[in-house]
Design a protein around this nucleic acid. Structure first.
Lengths: 316, 316
DNA sequence: GTCTAATATGATCTGATGTTATGAAGCTGG
DNA sequence: CCAGCTTCATAACATCAGATCATATTAGAC
């Protein structure tokens, strides 16, 4: 014999409020409805839940015990409702976000930290990858958002792309590097220094190749490759090596990493760093929250970058 | 927005069983029914509970979290069902039982102890009282059973009475009392001894008066009155006092109390000690259990009493 | 691709639950 | 002790969730 949880909740409310009429009101139901429901429940149970012939309806011992269980069921049910509400508002949920390693480590993770102080109940699972793999994960539901550099024209038809920043790369070196003071840098100037390269299959590596080619340098000596941002920063800080990094990464981490961008114009890839999502019927609401947050934060970052660029230009 | 607990339970089962079809089977429902229920729940929640386009149906993160709550709700609901079952079988419940003090203390409480080792989940609230008060309590639902001496003809019309023992009273004294060895006792023999009397409003007190009158003794000296059985036993044991007690009480407690019945025939009230209940539509099932138990136990006791009486007669 | 098993949908019926109106019965205060 | 108030139960009806069987659809596997 299975009881109806709803019935038990109603019973609990009646007992709590001390009467059927009050209970019905508290439940937002009509008094006859509640009365009949209790009659039905008593029939099924085969035992009285209320003392017979008592007018402010008083529960029997069995009624009281069942009401206690009903109250606990009600609490769980209410918790479920709260969970759903919180989820729908994007305040709860699990987000699986992946992106190109350097940008994730250098920029996005900072903002994830900020986001989580605001929405502590949103779990974020971060991982790394490049476009093809990430697109596959998005399609098969293994990922909620990819943060990748992408050309506007090459956004897959079944996906949405929200640009965050232009894919502006710079040559970076340690703050005290001989080249960082120079106003103009020639190809010959950078000739002596070894290079640190991102993994060979990363877009950043191709950027590096293209950038150097654009200033006429066809081959370059790679002294270290494949590390994450933390390794790259360590190596750069401890040597005179050079590398290519997104300017946003240099800008954000320079306080703590001691990196600087060389004043050497290199070709910018015609891509935008942005948020890629698969067009499903419904995306997790927390994803919208996160996307909006990230867009706002990155816009602020971009404004700071632009501001400094103007100041720098003005100063010469 | 209120969710249906039943829906959450179904969700929990689907997640537990790893698929809708299996879940439906485990729930004893048809597959289409469960499918539509989940569709309805998703509509109400406004978010998917299952990964879209996955064939062994797999829950989303929200689905999993709600399923956890559903499982807990299910556990509570099942506990409610068990409680009802246990109650209906008389294995759970609260019984409020009252009776005349001496008989309750001397006989019934012993059997209550035995009953509770068999049915530990039946709470028994014992109290004391005489007929009028107990009948009132039975009628207004403050009491489940009264154990009283009653004449068959004076059972109220709205009550049921199940006799347990004849209301056989004896004159009791301590085991070593001068009168306990005598085969025949005369009025003159008992003259010197003081009496212990039950409370003046108790039926036992009236029995005492009647009994003494029946053997020609019109007045008697009361040295102590009003105590419970424990006091009476103490006083009797420490003096040569006499009193009137139900034979069953003397029989059951003599081992530990050191009381004996004098071999003096006194008039027996034409009453039976028995169980009185108010005829309600439904009595607590545990009450039936207890009533049956008490009837059986007292029948055994009566058999022992009869057996001993025969042996004693034969020996002279 | 094709086949199979899992899920969704259509059509239909039953029963629970909601409503308003009204009857019955306990409680209360003079 | 009776009148009147309050509380609960019942009647009559409307609605919708939820059950069924039959069948369409589709994801996964070989």
């Amino acid at each position: 014999m299975k009881l109806d949880s709803e019935h038990l909740e109603i019973l609990a409310m009646i007992v709590e409020k001390g009467g059927l009429t009050e209970g019905a009101e508290a439940l937002g139901k009509s008094q006859p409805s509640v009365s009949r429901t209790m009659a039905l429940l008593e029939d099924r149970i085969g035992a009285p839940l209320f003392e017979p012939g008592k007018r402010p309806l008083r529960p029997t011992e069995l009624g009281e015990n069942l009401a206690r269980l009903g109250a606990r069921i009600h609490a769980l049910n209410a918790e479920a409702s709260r969970l759903v509400q919180s989820y729908r508002r994007g305040h709860t949920g699990r987000l699986r976000i992946a992106g190109t390693p350097i940008f994730m480590d250098g920029v996005v993770s900072t903002f994830i930290a900020d986001f989580q102080t605001r929405h502590p109940d949103v779990q974020i699972a971060q991982s790394y990858g490049y476009f093809d793999q990430l697109a596959t994960s998005l399609r098969n539901g293994g990922l909620d958002m990819a943060i990748v550099p992408l050309h506007q024209g090459s956004v897959p038809a079944d996906m949405s792309f929200v640009p965050l920043l232009p894919g502006r790369n710079v040559i970076a070196a340690r703050a005290g590097h001989p080249l960082t003071r120079r106003k103009t840098i020639t190809l010959a100037d950078i000739e002596p220094y070894p290079w640190i390269a991102p993994p060979a299959d990363s877009p950043l590596f191709r950027d590096l190749q293209r950038a150097l080619k654009s200033i006429g340098k066809e081959d370059f000596r790679v002294s270290f490759s494949g590390g994450t941002l933390a390794s790259i920063i360590s190596i750069l800080a401890g040597s005179d090596s050079l590398t290519v990094l997104p300017y946003s990464v240099v800008f954000l981490t320079r306080k703590t990493s001691g990196l600087e961008a060389l004043r050497l114009k290199i070709e910018h890839p015609d891509r935008q760093l942005g948020m890629l999502t698969f067009d499903r019927a419904s995306l997790p609401p927390a994803l919208r929250q996160f996307g909006d947050f990230l867009k706002d934060e990155v816009a602020l970052l971009e404004a700071r970058i632009q501001h400094e660029a103007q100041v720098t230009r003005r100063r010469g």
